[in-house]
């Protein structure tokens, strides 16, 4: 009986779905789209992330080693980060997980780990890039991605961040199209970008680095969308959303200060008895 309950509780952890969906996307990227993801690098990223998580667990004296979050971070990194250098791939994983343990404010880590690693490496090295166009814009593919992502989100019960981001960003794109007298095929093409959807469903939605209240999360999503739009269409720089998320990460503690809410814990779904007094990682 106990085993059965334990299994059910485990399955209720949304991170299993997230890992499954991200793996599926990775498989699709490698097998169908063939955009140059090396499995050796993927493995390197996963191993480094797990090792750093383990070290962090000891450092922060956490009650148990949790492999799920670093696995999700590794998959996100593998999907978005492009580099020719193995050392950079490993460094990315180290930076991502390390940032969770070191850059913290009021019991939460400040940055989305994968986002932090991507942006800092893009700033530090010219051998790192994000291929935002490589997912193509096939409508069907976008639809499938969105649905799969949604599944993850409803399990994580924090869908409003994603929905708000898509609504705000979409509104800005369509508004721009109206202003420029564009045919609607242009904003539609822009929204159907696979990388944008991956960002919306798997990165900005991370419940651990978004504000604690629903209104706060909508506000945050709106802010990210506006900054992303500004980077992309006012300064004409690539990777608007990814850069916007890191810029806006600093506003999350501010929003939380004004809007009280509960800190999200992956574990609470699984086992209410295990809770860390040190905060959540």
């Amino acid at each position: 009986m106990n085993t059965r309950n334990g299994l059910l509780a485990t399955l209720r952890d949304p991170r299993y779905y997230q890992i499954a969906v991200l793996s599926l996307l990775l498989g699709y990227g490698i097998a169908v789209l063939d955009f140059g993801i090396r499995w050796q690098y993927a493995l390197l990223i996963v191993i480094t992330a797990l090792v750093v998580q383990f070290a962090g667990t000891l450092y922060a004296k956490l009650p148990r080693f949790d492999p799920l979050s670093p696995l999700i971070t590794s998959l996100s990194l593998t999907l978005l980060l492009r580099t020719d250098e193995a050392a950079i791939a490993a460094l990315a994983a180290g930076l991502a997980i390390g940032s969770k343990f070191l850059l913290r404010f009021r019991g939460k880590h400040i940055f989305n780990p994968a986002n932090f690693a991507l942006v800092s490496l893009m700033l530090l090295s010219d051998r790192v890039w994000v291929s935002s166009g490589q997912w193509g814009s096939a409508a069907l593919g976008a639809f499938a991605l969105a649905c799969l992502g949604f599944l993850v989100l409803t399990k994580a019960k924090r869908a409003e961040t994603t929905i708000a981001f898509i609504v705000f960003y979409g509104a800005l794109l369509f508004g721009r199209a109206l202003w420029l007298d564009y045919p609607f095929s242009i904003p539609l093409h822009q929204v159907q970008n696979g990388a944008l959807l991956i960002f919306a469903f798997f990165m900005i939605s991370d419940p651990r680095t978004t504000p604690n209240t629903a209104i706060g999360r909508v506000l945050h999503a709106g802010l990210v969308a506006s900054v992303a739009y500004t980077i992309q269409f006012v300064f004409y720089q690539p990777n608007g959303p990814i850069l916007a998320l890191i810029i806006c990460a600093l506003t999350v503690p501010l929003i939380d200060m004004f809007m009280q809410g509960r800190i999200y814990r992956w574990e609470q779904v699984v086992d209410r008895r295990i809770s860390s007094t040190k905060g959540v990682f």
Binding site: D126, S131, S132, G133, Q134, S137, P238
Partner: peptide
């Protein structure tokens, strides 16, 4: 100067 160029709003294959 640095490396390969690709399109950001279309797939480069």
């Amino acid at each position: 100067r640095t490396g390969r160029v690709e399109t950001t709003n279309y797939r480069t294959v």
